[in-house]
Design a protein around this nucleic acid. Sequence first.
DNA 1: ATGAAAGCGCTAACAG
DNA 2: CTGTTAGCGCTTTCAT
Lengths: 336, 336
Amino acid sequence: MDHSKSTKKPMTSRELAALIGVSQSAVSRAFTPGSSIARDLRERILMQAREYGYQPNAIASMLTKRRTNIVGIVVSDMRNPFYPALIEKLTQALQRAGLQSLLFNVTPGAEIEKQLVAIHTYNVDAVVVIASTMLNSRMLTRITEGRKAVLLNRIGHEDIASVCCDNALGARLLVDHLYEAGHRRIGHVAGMTSSGIGMLRYSAFTSRLAELGMRLTRTVSHEAFSYEAGWDSALDLLADEPDAIFFTSDILALGGIDALRTDPRGAGVGVVGFDDIPMAAWPNYSLTTYRQPVSAIAETTTRLLTEDGPTTPKLYSLPGELVIRASSAPRITGAE
Amino acid sequence: MDHSKSTKKPMTSRELAALIGVSQSAVSRAFTPGSSIARDLRERILMQAREYGYQPNAIASMLTKRRTNIVGIVVSDMRNPFYPALIEKLTQALQRAGLQSLLFNVTPGAEIEKQLVAIHTYNVDAVVVIASTMLNSRMLTRITEGRKAVLLNRIGHEDIASVCCDNALGARLLVDHLYEAGHRRIGHVAGMTSSGIGMLRYSAFTSRLAELGMRLTRTVSHEAFSYEAGWDSALDLLADEPDAIFFTSDILALGGIDALRTDPRGAGVGVVGFDDIPMAAWPNYSLTTYRQPVSAIAETTTRLLTEDGPTTPKLYSLPGELVIRASSAPRITGAE
DNA sequence: ATGAAAGCGCTAACAG
DNA sequence: CTGTTAGCGCTTTCAT
């Protein structure tokens, strides 16, 4: 039988307690795992709760426990298709751990600090900052102080843990692959120079290039990780007649591929990207790239946020996977 | 001078009140717009609050005001690039209205109801459900009961408001455009048949087709709005030798375009999509499509959720914009 | 193991 | 306009 009334106000623990003749604390304990309460009392209460449609009010619980079970997710670049994929996996992993995700979309225009006050007033337990070059180190300190925090695709903050794929390894594997495919003169498209991750990939890229005796024709940067930036950069690099171009991110590479097709000098130029966004697998692009271990990143982040004790502010570097497709076809056989 | 100690626990209104010799309610009122408090008292309190780094605790406020200022955003398909764009605009609009976004990512596998209990326990003020065919009507009723709600890209629920672009208009304009470009035999790719929006576009499409005396060669559906589904559907439709293909969504159309290129019969077949995702503008695709008014959708949704009084459960249909690109090039001039 | 009672930090009557 | 007083619904001692 269904006792649940569709009243406006949800029922309180006290009401339920009165209804079934136990103390209010008993109800509370029934819903608190590990609290000392008799097995059968708990069962009885939980059963009745289901009958009456009672659910503990999380807000009240937050107030007393001073835990919200909410993690703030700070994003600024939803345009790069890599991030929606990451956010999806992350929120799912957090949900499985019983954590909710409060989304903060920081936009360039307005005062960014204003947009983030809710992190404090809502007392989020933890903060995950995704990439955002929009926040400087001081802001990061402010929004993360007093709570757990993880940076994704961002490095270099002294007191905050970072979770990334192994960017250096990825860059090296891509260079190795280009080498094996017969490419020797490599151009580089950096995207934003303000991105620590971009620079990390860049340095691993150049040092591996040097080790193999290959040549960096030139580096081009644009203040965005975007299709358009990739397009412009690729055309720019053609002047140096590279055998192949290393793009710091897939979205840049896709723009690059399309741009190269518009120029005769682009024929046969190999292309590699980084991330493995869905479009990289589209036959039209068939982009060779380094796949970021998105699930592992999400899991690791969740683990760091849920384990007790302070989070070690180190860099957690997770191995990804080299994905070879047609865009980096061997030089010998010519263009695809 | 900076009095703010970086202590763990943030300061309370009572502490601040004691510190500056006013009542605790005065502090509360200082932070409550429109409360009756002297101008200078408020100013003084706010100033001191800034000094000491006091911020009202939103959790406590939620408990008394029984408003959370949180809206739950329920999504299931972050894969379709249209949705990240929509979510971005929506959360930004909500933020400007002082509302936070709690993200619910419903995954097919597990028990969906379980994933949504937090909507109740966290007492979100409002719910926005994006597209998700994953939730049936009964679930919608359950999660929206007792709070404001808006469906985006989803229609047909009796008691809940829907905000959409004008799908019928869009479909008609696209058909008109195909007609003018000389196409007469049109194929149709439906994506998911469980999508009300998809069906709405479909019926507007077919009726306009009929009005103009054009011919629907065939409709193909796949249980997804994805690149792959578009690819397969397009190849499937080629058997009927259509002049052009109408895809119910851009992401389908992109797959279709690439697929058509793999088949000689695909040359010269016109393509139109719906949404205007960023990739539609990429030169390689140059997809003619109907642009959804994403900002207007976000604004309208925010308005509905913030205005007081119950939300009328009607369909708010917002005009988009026909975007003509090369994919629907006139039949006369042949393939591009 | 259970109940009673004291808050968590704030808002909202209620007096004055 | 300001201060005092009750709670909001829960968790958590503290007794029993």
